[in-house]
Design a protein around this nucleic acid. Structure first.
Length: 603
DNA sequence: AGAGGTGGTG
DNA sequence: CATGCACCACCTCT
């Protein structure tokens, strides 16, 4: 096979730079490059605990390794790293962007991220986008990614870099060039350049969002936990007292108290309780099954579970993630966290903080600041209207009508004024959302509370009135199966592993693809939209020089943190930029967004 | 350690 | 034939 890279794997060429003179000299050379690779080595994955050790800047043949302990003046390199005329290849650049900004105050511009590119290229195939995997895949070389064996934290103390450290550091930068070239070819061939540019432009926004983090009112949060624990304890005691007679052997604990008969958290023991001792025959212990029994113990158990859930998932565990340096929460945003292109969020997952509970209002602005929250109104349904071009849907949005009411009026053949909010409108809402998930009549029936036949009738009626929606959904499903991928308005692709006709699950696999094929263009286009919005908002805040920053995003919502006196301006700009992003993708349907300035996170 | 169940978000 | 999309965290059990 032809040599696809121009460096020596076992002995990569590099220059280890510890003096200002050598740095200036290297900077002069690098300023002449059009494309460079950037990488860093440090002691921690945490932006604020990390001690920056090395900054590598690579050219295709040679890596310049700057010793971050010895170098004091980074100005010549800042000029290069911030030069928009020089393309910077990085691997998982969100991390390096954050580290370099936190440690050196330098902002990487004009980024090509091999990890994001790979995630775009293999989207849907569940393949790794790690450097090791890509080096093997594109270059057929094996990288030693045993990071621990290098003991960077110890080297960080001594400042004594060994040959293996420098080799490793050099190679990490050098491999990026050939990977970039191979990926670039694929991105072009597959028509993915546009979506890659979008993702690369979002990267700095994500890194800064993580750097900024969210502020929490800890005392208030603790108060919520205390209340919940009390409630959980009361409910648990009631249940245990109630079921104790059902068990013949009751034990005392060390203090002479009657001990619990069962572990309320064990669905196995709960199932045994209901089926063997209470004479029911439940298939499972989920909320749907339990609430349909009307058994008093089932009721109490659901209450217990609600408290238990909130305590375990959002209680002290979340507070433990507050950064000791900044006193804020810095979650990990996965930029392409879902195959549809949506973000995911972890450690902690701030995208699943309960809406109704008191927890959400513990996310507060600091003194002198405000939170600005804006979300798109019915973003995904507007995307569906755009794709299907259904005249009724499009007209409803053009006339700024409530879509669920319009569909209810059409389906039930009644005037809009007579649509009842919790009857016809609710049913229409369920159908509207269900359609976007490729939902069938049986599951629909279960939720609306009618039999399957009536649900089928409702669906038929819906599709009769909104025939273009049906045409588009069927087309999207067919397209996905026949072509092996779906696309979004922003040019994203999601690939599907083809269903094997010999597989016993063949039909299920096909219908899986069909449902994903309906949902992916909708959910994915929404994701594209909010990513454009994030870029626009950051640019706008910078251009207008206002003290406002993006701190959070939840699929169709963006939260910013602004200095109090400019919060209203921030709200206006944020909304304008979100609409601009929407108008970039939706040509036939208007987009709308609404927001608030507040002390707490709400919408 | 990993699977399965349950439940939180959009 | 089986039938709601996309995630993440916690718990228990094996």
């Amino acid at each position: 096979m032809p040599e696809s890279y121009s460096f020596n794997i076992t002995s990569p060429s590099y220059e280890y730079i510890t003096s200002q003179e050598k740095l200036v000299e290297a900077a002069r050379i690098l300023l002449g490059e059009k494309v460079i690779a950037v990488d860093t080595e440090g002691t921690s994955l945490d932006y604020y605990y990390n001690k920056l050790l090395l900054v590598q800047i690579g050219t295709p043949e040679k890596a310049y390794i700057f010793d971050a302990i010895k170098i004091k003046d980074w100005a010549p390199l800042k000029k290069i790293i911030e030069d928009p005329g020089i393309l910077k290849i990085v691997q998982n650049g969100k991390f390096d962007y954050g580290i370099i900004k936190a440690a050196l105050g330098i902002e990487i511009t004009n980024i090509y991220d091999t990890m994001l590119a790979e995630q775009i290229i293999v989207n849907g195939f569940k393949q790794s986008a790690s450097l090791g995997t890509m080096a093997k895949k594109y270059l057929e070389i094996t990288l030693d990614k045993n990071y621990e064996s290098y003991q960077w934290d110890k080297v960080g103390v001594s400042g004594n870099f060994q040959k293996n450290h420098l080799n490793y550091a050099a190679l990490d930068a050098l491999v990026l060039f050939p990977i970039f070239h191979k990926q670039w070819e694929i991105l072009n061939k597959e028509g993915l350049v546009k979506i890659a540019r979008l993702e690369f432009s979002v990267l700095p926004v994500v890194a800064e969002m993580e750097l900024t983090g969210s502020h929490i009112d800890v005392a208030k949060w603790r108060g919520v936990i205390v209340d919940l624990r009390l409630k959980r304890q009361e409910t648990a005691k009631k249940i245990q007292d109630e079921i104790r007679p059902l068990f013949s052997y009751n034990q005392m604990d060390l203090f002479g108290n009657l001990s619990d008969s069962i572990n309320l958290n064990s669905q196995q023991q709960i199932l045994e309780l209901f089926n063997d001792r209470l004479g029911l025959s439940l298939p499972s212990t989920g909320v749907k099954v339990l609430s349909s029994t009307n058994h008093p113990i089932a009721k109490m158990l659901l209450e217990y579970r609600a408290s238990e859930k909130l305590i375990s998932a959002f209680g002290e565990n979340l507070l433990a993630k507050i950064n000791k340096v900044t006193g804020r929460l810095h979650p990990d945003f996965q930029q392409i966290g879902a195959a549809t292109g949506r973000f995911s969020c972890s450690s902690p997952n701030l995208q699943q903080i309960p809406r109704g509970s008191q927890f959400r209002s513990c996310f507060v602005a600091e003194k002198g600041r405000k939170l600005v929250t804006v979300d798109y109104s019915q973003q995904e349904l507007r995307v569906l209207a755009e794709y299907s071009e259904d005249p009724t849907l499009v007209a409803a949005y053009k006339e700024k009508k409530d879509l669920h009411t319009v569909t209810a009026a059409m389906m039930y053949g009644i005037p809009e004024e007579r649509v009842r909010k919790d009857v016809e409108r609710q049913a229409s809402k369920t159908i509207n959302f269900g359609l976007m998930y490729g939902r069938g009549a049986s599951s629909l029936a279960a939720q609306i509370g009618v039999n399957q036949e009536e649900a089928k009738k409702l669906l038929d009626l819906y599709f009769k009135k909104f025939s273009k929606v049906k045409v588009w959904l069927d087309w999207a499903a067919k397209f996905a199966v026949e072509n092996g991928y779906s696309t979004t308005l922003g040019g994203r692709k999601r690939y599907y592993i083809p269903a094997d006709p010999g597989d016993p699950n063949y039909l299920k696999m096909v219908s899986d693809i069909e449902r994903k094929g309906k949902n992916t263009p909708i959910q994915g286009s929404g994701a594209d939209m909010i990513k454009y919005a994030l870029i626009f908002i950051r640019d706008r805040f910078r251009k207008e020089k206002i003290d406002a920053r993006i701190i959070h995003t939840v699929h169709d919502e963006i939260v910013c943190d602004a200095e109090a006196s400019v919060a209203d301006d921030a709200l206006r700009m944020q909304k304008e930029e979100m609409l601009r992003a929407g108008e970039l993708l939706l040509k036939k349907v208007p987009i709308d967004a609404s927001g608030v300035v507040s002390e707490v996170w709400e919408h």
